Lab assay of single mutants.
Amino acid sequence: SIKEIEKEEIIKVLKEVNFNKKLASEILGIPLRTLYKRLKEYGI
């Protein structure tokens, strides 16, 4: 599903940037606030 793909992509990017959420949100092209929402939604 799209949610699974998105979750995997978020985890992959977070690992690449050593869990720097600000940098991860910039790489993913989403606002930091949205990233936090996704992390909560996906239980990351």
Rank of each mutant, 00 (worst) to 15 (best):
L32D: 01
I27G: 02
E8G: 10
F19R: 03
I27Q: 08
E6Y: 08
I10T: 10
I10Q: 01
G43I: 05
F19E: 03
K12G: 07
R38M: 15
E9P: 02
K3N: 14
L28R: 00
T34A: 11
Y42S: 04
I11W: 08
I2F: 07
E16L: 15
K22I: 13
R33Y: 12
V13L: 09
V13E: 01
K12T: 08
K40M: 11
P31D: 14
E9V: 13
K3S: 13
I27C: 02
E4W: 06
K15N: 12
E4M: 06
E4F: 09
A24P: 00
I2R: 03
Y36C: 05
N20Y: 05
T34R: 06
P31S: 15
I44H: 06
T34E: 15
K37G: 06
E9L: 15
E26H: 11
E6S: 13
E41T: 05
I5S: 14
A24E: 00
E4S: 07
E6Q: 10
K12A: 12
I5Y: 13
I30M: 12
L35S: 00
L23A: 12
K21R: 10
L14N: 00
E6F: 08
K15Q: 11
K37A: 13
A24N: 00
Y42A: 05
I10H: 02
A24M: 03
V17E: 02
I30N: 00
K40S: 09
T34S: 09
F19S: 05
E4A: 08
Y36E: 15
K40D: 09
R33D: 15
L28A: 01
K21Y: 15
E41G: 05
T34L: 13
I27K: 11
N18Y: 08
I30S: 01
L39K: 01
I11G: 03
L14W: 05
I44V: 08
S25G: 06
F19Y: 15
I2S: 14
L32R: 03
K15S: 10
V13M: 05
G43C: 05
L39A: 02
K21L: 13
K3Y: 09
G43S: 07
V17R: 02
E26G: 08
E16G: 11
L14G: 00
L28F: 03
V13Y: 02
A24Y: 01
N18M: 10
E26S: 11
Y36V: 15
E16Y: 11
L35E: 00
I5A: 15
L23Y: 07
G29R: 07
I2Y: 05
L39E: 02
K15F: 12
P31F: 03
A24I: 02
L14V: 03
K3G: 11
A24V: 05
V17F: 05
K37Q: 15
L23H: 08
E41C: 03
I5Q: 15
R38V: 15
K3F: 10
V17T: 11
N20W: 04
I44D: 04
I10N: 01
K15W: 10
I27N: 04
K3C: 04
T34N: 07
E9N: 15
E26F: 11
E41I: 07
I27S: 05
V17Y: 06
E41Y: 07
P31N: 09
K12V: 06
G43Y: 06
N18L: 08
E41K: 08
I44C: 03
E41S: 06
A24Q: 00
L28H: 01
E16N: 10
E8M: 14
K15T: 12
F19N: 10
V17N: 09
E26K: 13
N20P: 01
I27E: 04
I27H: 06
S1N: 14
K22M: 10
L32E: 05
V17G: 02
R33E: 15
K7P: 06
V13C: 04
K37W: 08
Y36Q: 13
T34F: 06
Y42R: 01
I2A: 13
I44L: 11
E8R: 13
K3V: 11
G43D: 09
L14P: 00
K37C: 03
T34D: 15
L23G: 03
N20C: 05
K37V: 09
E9M: 15
L39R: 01
K3T: 12
V13F: 03
K12R: 15
E8I: 12
Y42D: 04
N20Q: 05
K7L: 11
E16D: 12
E6P: 09
S25V: 04
N18G: 12
L35Y: 01
Y42N: 04
K12D: 04
K37Y: 08
L28T: 02
S25D: 00
I5P: 12
K7D: 07
K40L: 12
V13G: 02
K15R: 14
F19Q: 07
I11D: 03
N18A: 12
E41P: 02
R38G: 03
F19C: 03
I11Q: 07
L39P: 00
K40E: 15
R33Q: 14
E16A: 14
S1V: 12
L35I: 04
F19P: 02
E26A: 13
E8S: 12
N18H: 10
I10A: 03
K12E: 06
E8N: 13
E16K: 12
L32V: 07
G43W: 04
V17W: 04
K15C: 04
I2D: 15
S25Y: 01
I27V: 12
I2C: 06
K7C: 04
S25M: 03
T34C: 03
L28M: 07
K22Y: 10
L32Q: 04
P31K: 08
I11A: 06
R33H: 14
G29S: 06
K22R: 13
L28G: 00
K12I: 06
E4Q: 12
I11S: 05
K40C: 04
K40W: 12
K22A: 10
E41H: 07
I27A: 08
L35T: 00
N20S: 07
E8L: 14
N20M: 04
I10E: 01
I27R: 13
E4Y: 08
Y42G: 03
L35F: 08
K37E: 15
K37L: 13
G43Q: 10
F19I: 01
I30P: 00
P31A: 10
S1I: 10
S1E: 14
E6C: 06
K40Y: 10
L39W: 03
K37H: 10
G29M: 07
N18K: 10
E41Q: 09
K15E: 09
